[in-house]
């Protein structure tokens, strides 16, 4: 199972979301999840199972598949809920 956090350059904010997802994955003890980050133009539907983007990139990420749209990328509670439900969707819990 692969989660991918994305932003427009794939340098700053997606990296931060990725590190927070990694913390949450560890906290929830989800098995076999790898988390990566990238810029939005390099990502295709095959790049990951679940994609995480901020709300402002919702349109740009359309068509990738299972896209999770975050209202605020600095809200860790929102992110935790999003990761939980993504894990449930993919039968991890």
């Amino acid at each position: 199972m692969k989660f991918l956090a994305m932003c427009s350059t794939g340098l700053g904010s997606s990296f931060m979301v990725r590190m927070n997802i990694e913390d949450i994955v560890r906290e929830l003890q989800l098995p076999d999840v790898t988390v990566e980050h990238s810029d939005i133009s390099s990502a295709g539907p095959e790049s990951a199972d679940v994609f995480f983007v901020a709300k402002d990139l919702e349109d740009a990420a359309a068509g990738l598949g299972d896209v999770v749209v975050l209202n605020s990328i600095i809200d860790k509670d929102e992110l935790r809920d999003a990761v939980k439900s993504a894990a449930a969707r993919h039968g991890l819990t």
Binding site: S8, L11, S13, M16, A54, K55, D56, S72, I73
Partner: peptide, 17 residues
């Protein structure tokens, strides 16, 4: 206080972006 990249503020005011 982590100082983070600028897109963290983009979702607060999309029109202002």
């Amino acid at each position: 206080k982590p100082a983070l990249d600028v897109p963290i503020v983009f979702t607060f005011a999309p029109n202002a972006v």
